[in-house]
């Protein structure tokens, strides 16, 4: 398996790790200042509604992002980390991850609308799980872009080398 665009892959890996770490909020580090004025909350104020009732809490402080956003970031991070495994399994050739991601986005929208209209009440865990699926499916769209698998043929085509590429 060989790696292409290593710098970009690592940049995204470091970036998403930073986003997750900061998104967990000041409670993770037991910061002794009110969470409303912590820099983690301010950093995400343009991106997430940060409603404490819709966020997980650590050490008596809500995270800097809501449970669905946390799921999206964590899912993207997990998906990004496992991209090499998907390259080994040659999943990019077998699955259309764009369609999978689109379906999961629609499920999330359906969940949000159903909750707002009062058809059901989603929970912290259900929002985290759906967000995680969305983030992971978004990361898997890049399977086949950063790693390629070298396949050595056997039998009649012994010795022929094929690289998965898109």
């Amino acid at each position: 398996m060989s790696n292409r665009q290593t710098n970009l892959y690592l940049l995204v890996l470091v970036s998403i790790s930073g986003v997750i770490l900061v998104g967990l909020g000041g409670g993770l580090f037991n910061q002794q200042s009110p969470w409303q004025i912590q820099w983690q909350h301010e950093a995400f104020s343009n991106l997430c509604h940060q409603n404490p009732a819709r966020s997980f809490w650590i050490n008596g402080q809500p995270m800097a992002v809501c449970s669905r956003c946390l799921g999206i970031y964590a899912g993207f991070g997990i998906g990004w980390l496992t991209l090499p495994l998907y390259a080994i399994a040659n999943m990019a050739e077998k699955w259309n991850f764009k369609k999978v991601a689109m379906a999961i986005v629609l499920i999330n929208i359906f969940d949000i609308v159903g909750n707002i209209l009062g058809f059901w009440e989603n929970t912290l865990v259900s929002r985290l799980a759906l967000g995680c699926m969305m983030g992971m499916s978004a990361a898997l769209i890049f399977s086949g872009d950063f790693f390629k698998t070298i396949i050595k043929s056997k039998g009649n085509h012994y010795g022929r080398v094929t690289a998965t590429d898109r």
Binding site: V12, V19, V22, A43, F44, N46, L47, A138, F142, D145
Partner: peptide, 25 residues
Amino acid sequence: ILTSIGGIVFMGVLNMLTGMLGVKV
């Protein structure tokens, strides 16, 4: 100042990811 810079950086980073998604789509 710090929170403004933090906001710009995190907004930039998340949009970097959606920008890459935009290339794929």
